[in-house]
Amino acid sequence: MLSMFEVLKFLVSFFLILPVVTFIHLSGHIFFVSIFGGTEKKLVIGCGKHLFSFWRIEVRKYYFWNGACEFKSLRYDNRLTNMIIYLGGSIFNFTSIVIVNWLIYSGRLEDSVLWNQFIYFSFYVLFFSLFPMYFSDGSPSDGKAAVLSLKNEHDDKITDDIQIRKDD
């Protein structure tokens, strides 16, 4: 039976922690897109109707569910750079897990439910983004796209959370 504390923990996790973990993941993709000369970059948090934008970040109605990073083209566009971009979100999630664990271990952060949930959701996102599979819409996971890119079998650069923007 769920206690009131567990229900509150669940709500905080899904409406605050998961969007932060998603933002970190998408920031990893955008970081590497930027390094490799990406143009017209945008980070989209959530799905549904557009709520507001600031800088190059768009927030949508269901901010707690999914997200995407968009860009138009890359200056350095080859199998290796594409693979790194696909893995960028996972690299950032893994790095955030290591940093939070180190801060807790070193006593700079107090071990708490908040940080445990952050680590849990970071592992969740990390695992499912790296698991080499196709989603129900036919788009590959980041891990699958990285493998396809390395094999030179992935041309469109679209995954569940990475999209090439077309001319409007």
Rank of each mutant, 00 (worst) to 15 (best):
S13Y: 02
F14Q: 11
L16E: 06
P19C: 01
V20Q: 00
V20F: 15
V21N: 01
L26C: 05
G28D: 02
S34W: 12
I35M: 10
F36V: 03
F36Q: 07
G38Q: 08
T39C: 03
E40L: 09
E40A: 14
L43H: 08
C47H: 08
C47M: 15
C47D: 14
K49P: 00
L51F: 12
L51Q: 11
F52A: 11
I57D: 07
E58C: 05
K61P: 07
K61N: 06
Y62F: 15
Y63N: 05
W65E: 07
G67Y: 09
A68T: 02
C69T: 15
C69N: 11
E70V: 09
Y76H: 13
D77K: 14
R79F: 09
R79Y: 08
T81Q: 06
N82V: 06
I85L: 07
L87N: 01
G88N: 05
G88K: 01
I91E: 00
I91R: 00
F94H: 06
T95I: 13
S96P: 08
I99S: 01
N101F: 09
Y105E: 10
G107Q: 10
G107W: 10
E110G: 03
S112M: 04
L114E: 02
W115E: 01
Q117W: 10
F118V: 01
Y120F: 15
F123V: 00
Y124R: 04
V125R: 04
V125L: 14
L126E: 04
F128D: 10
L130A: 06
F131Y: 15
F131C: 12
P132M: 02
M133R: 12
S136M: 13
